[in-house]
Structures are given as C-alpha cells and as structure tokens.
Design a protein around this nucleic acid. Structure first.
Length: 449
DNA sequence: TACGTAATAT
DNA sequence: AATATTACGT
C-alpha cells in the first residue's frame, strides 16, 4: 500500500512502499522547512516542537560539535512529537541521526554481563571474531571514507534508546534496503552467516547476531544432515560439516529443532484438516491422492532419501506459494515458501519431490499444479526477493481457496500467463470438445479473484 | 557435557 | 515470523 501524504491544499503524493530514504528525508525537509518559514499564526501546533527541537539541535551543534549524538537524539524526539503526525511522518532519517546512532552503537555494550556469562565461551569468541571480520568486510566493500555517511541504520524495534535493544540494530548500505532478504544464487554468500553477497548486514554490538537461514545456508544444513544420516545428525556434527564461519552449535541446534518439528508435521495438522474438509469432490480426491502422513523421520538401513523429505517451512501462510518449483528445479532443496500439504514421502525423487501426487487431470492439459503455479508465482518471487511486505497485496487465504476451487472446477479459465502455442491448441480443442460456448479472452496474466 | 524438547523471549 | 534463549530432563 502506498503511503499517502496529504498536503494542506489537497495535493496528495503517493509514495510507493519501500519508502526510500530520500523521500523520507525529503518529507522531513518539508516539515522542518515549514516549521521555520510558516508565519507564527499559520504555524500549527504540531510544527512548534519541530522548530524547537531543530533550534536546540542547531544550538547544540554549534556549541559542541562532538555532541552530535545528543543532537540527533533530539531529532529522535522530534519524530515522536505530536500523536497524529507520527503516523504520517515516520522518524527522520538524517545523516546526523545516522551518525548519532552509530555513536550510540559504538558505546559500551550494556550486555557485557550477558556476554561474560555466556556459557559456550568458545562459540562466543568465535562470534566476536566473526563480527569484527564482518566489519572489515563492510569497510572493504565501501569506497574509502564514504562509509560513515553511506551506512544506514535500521531499527527492527522502535526504541533504540533502550540499550537492551541494541542488538536488533543492523547496518545496511542504503542501496540494499530493499534487498535485505534477497538471497540470490551466489553460493559464496552461504559461507558467512549474516553476510549475503557481501551486502553487509551486521549487528551493532557483540551480542549474538541472528542467523538468517538463507536458502544457501539451509541447503548446507540439509546436506549435512543427510550426509550424517538421520540419527547421527546432531548439532555439533552438523556444524562441523557445514563449515560455516560464525555459525554456532546453538544456531544449528535451534534450526535443527525446527527442522525436525516440521518433518514431524507438527505444523501442518490444522491446515491439513482444512483441506480434508473440503467438500469439492475433485479436491477431496486430490487430497486422498497425496500422502497424508508423509516423512516418517526414520530410515531403516540408513538408507537416505535421495531428496529431502520436506519443503523448507517458510511461509506457511501462503500455501500456494511453493508451487513455483514445479516443473523446474531452480531450488531443488529449498522451497522458498512451503506448501506442506504437498510434502513428499520417502522414496520420492527430487524431480517429483514436493509435487502433489495428482490423479491424471480430468481434462487433459489442465493440471491443478499448473494453475497454482501461476497463482503463486508472485508470492514466491517476492519471498525470494525479500519483499515480505508485498504479501499485503496478495489475497487472503479464503480468497486463495476460492480461486483454487474455481481453477479446479473450471479448467477452462484462462491461464494467467498464457500457454505456449501447442498447449493453446489443445486447450481450444478441449474447450470445443466440452462444447463450451464461452471461449475466454486471450490470457494476459489477470487472475480471477 | 551434549543433546532434545517445549516454552518463552526477542 | 523466524531465531534465540531458557529450562529441564536424558
């Protein structure tokens, strides 16, 4: 959803969602500008604090240049004035603020006690080292001397004045803001946790950084697990096999826990029921064809499955989103968004893994998967390109379900992205065979909703 | 001590 | 929502 800024005279500017720093800054420039230039009479109450804050900031700056940090904290206050305005004008993102935050960040780590009580000191040391390494990378990446001003700080939590939240602060290059979650095919990125494609995202303090289990990283994990065998896959060994710098046993254990839980189908139950309760006969038969209790996490004779037994759990909300993998295998081991109800079962091979076991499609050429694939493409792509906010643009589950039903029951609906000529022919043939009088308009990507 | 699990925190 | 952390039992 675009953020709209309504100006006084009724003009509205639509800002597309990953709000760029520049735009944000621009807005705030307007605010500040207005705070100073508007006549006192015309000056709204909400602008007064802005002016006051800016004035105090300027004073501070001239008085003592070293105290940029405080000045910027003042700026932070500015962002919090006026209840209404906060909604429409997010916190300012000014160079001063950034620098101040960096200063704050460089300040002492209040969690030192935490750090010292860290049990696995070995691991912790490793992490400290890792973070420093990452910092070096950061500096190496940036052209000299430009680093300070180009690094952008992003809060995951609102209140950065709370020392306990420092850990959630990450730095990013501005140009990477939109691709924070981006995981591309660059395999080298998997070798360092938290550093993807050398687009640095580092934690500010020495505390543990959250590991982002990118597809690459997860692939490594899965590979290690499979290599070890189901009953030798313990955190420490997995860790060894993965050989990922900075990764701790805890990280692996945590991931492993989740991995196992998903393999055991703890998550899917409720949604499985949902599908089984479908009244649509076609869907029911479809459900019956697929494995309902897949993936017993145990393999006699240590026979490892050729393909992993699960899809990466990912976005279980967007059930349709995983179909992207069907037909091609760009990400054979890692499905960006899981559709658990199409998990495979032991013995299934990689090319079929993850695919529903479908009855021969009743009208040939119309497979459920085909349509789902298209339906879900955008979501899957969004996940891959790290734009979770775009989920807003996608239909709710009920809508998806409805659409799915439609697709199943009305195979003649136009395919959103069109069919290649041979398919088109068979589609037309099928339509005429069924005696359908309504031939849909040529497909153009529109999805019935 | 490492591990697994569940609950809880961030 | 995804990870981390913690508590507790083995």
């Amino acid at each position: 959803m675009p953020r709209t800024c309504q100006l006084l005279l009724g003009a509205v500017e639509f800002l597309s969602k990953p709000l760029s720093e520049d735009k944000l800054r621009n807005i705030w420039q307007h605010v500040v500008h207005k705070a100073f230039n508007a006549g006192v009479s015309a000056q709204s109450e909400s602008l007064k604090p802005v002016k006051e804050s800016v004035v105090s900031i300027l004073q501070l700056q001239t008085n003592n240049e070293q105290h940029e940090s405080r000045a910027s904290i003042e700026l932070e206050k500015v962002s919090r004035f006026g209840d209404n305005d906060r909604e429409h004008y997010p916190a300012p993102s000014t160079p001063q603020l950034k620098q101040a935050e960096r200063l704050l960040d460089d300040g002492d780590c209040q969690e030192q006690t935490n750090c010292s009580t860290e049990k696995e000191s070995g691991e912790h040391d490793g992490e400290s080292k890792f973070i420093e390494t990452t910092c070096e990378n950061l500096n190496a990446e940036s052209t000299p001397r430009q680093t300070k001003s180009e690094i952008t700080l992003v809060h995951k939590e609102e209140d950065f004045t709370d020392a306990s939240k420092y850990e959630s602060v990450v730095f990013r290059h501005p140009q990477n803001l939109k691709v924070l979650k981006n995981s591309d095919s660059n395999t080298t990125s998997a070798n360092k946790v938290g550093v993807r494609n050398h687009k640095c995202e580092i934690k500010a303090n020495r505390k543990k950084m959250k590991v982002d289990w990118t597809p690459e990283l997860h692939k490594k994990f899965v590979k290690a697990v499979e290599q070890l065998g189901i009953d030798h896959a313990i955190p420490s060994r997995i860790l060894d096999l993965m050989k990922v710098e900075g990764l701790t046993r805890h990280n692996v254990a945590s991931h492993l826990q989740k991995y196992r839980m998903h393999k055991r189908h703890i998550l899917p139950k409720q949604e499985d029921r949902k599908w089984l309760n479908q009244r649509d006969p076609m869907q029911r038969s479809y459900c019956l064809q697929r494995p309902i209790m897949p993936s017993p996490p145990y393999y006699p004779n240590h026979t490892l499955p050729i393909a992993p037994l699960y899809s990466m759990w990912g976005q279980s909300r967007n059930q349709t989103a995983s179909m992207q993998v069907w037909g091609h295998s760009g990400y054979p081991l890692w499905q960006p968004t899981e559709s658990w109800h199409w998990k495979s079962f032991p013995g299934m091979h990689s090319d079929t893994w993850g695919c529903p076991v479908l009855p021969p499609p009743q009208p040939p050429n119309f497979s459920f998967s085909h349509n789902i694939h298209v339906l879900s493409n955008a979501n899957a792509a969004d996940y891959m390109f790290g734009m979770p906010s775009s989920f807003d643009h996608y239909p709710a589950e009920e809508v998806v379900d409805k659409v799915v039903k439609e697709v199943i029951s009305k195979p003649w609906l136009p395919l959103p992205i069109g069919l290649k000529p041979p398919s088109t022919d068979s589609v037309l043939a099928e339509i005429s065979r069924q005696g359908s009088s309504t031939i849909p308009p040529s497909s153009n990507g529109s999805i019935p909703s």
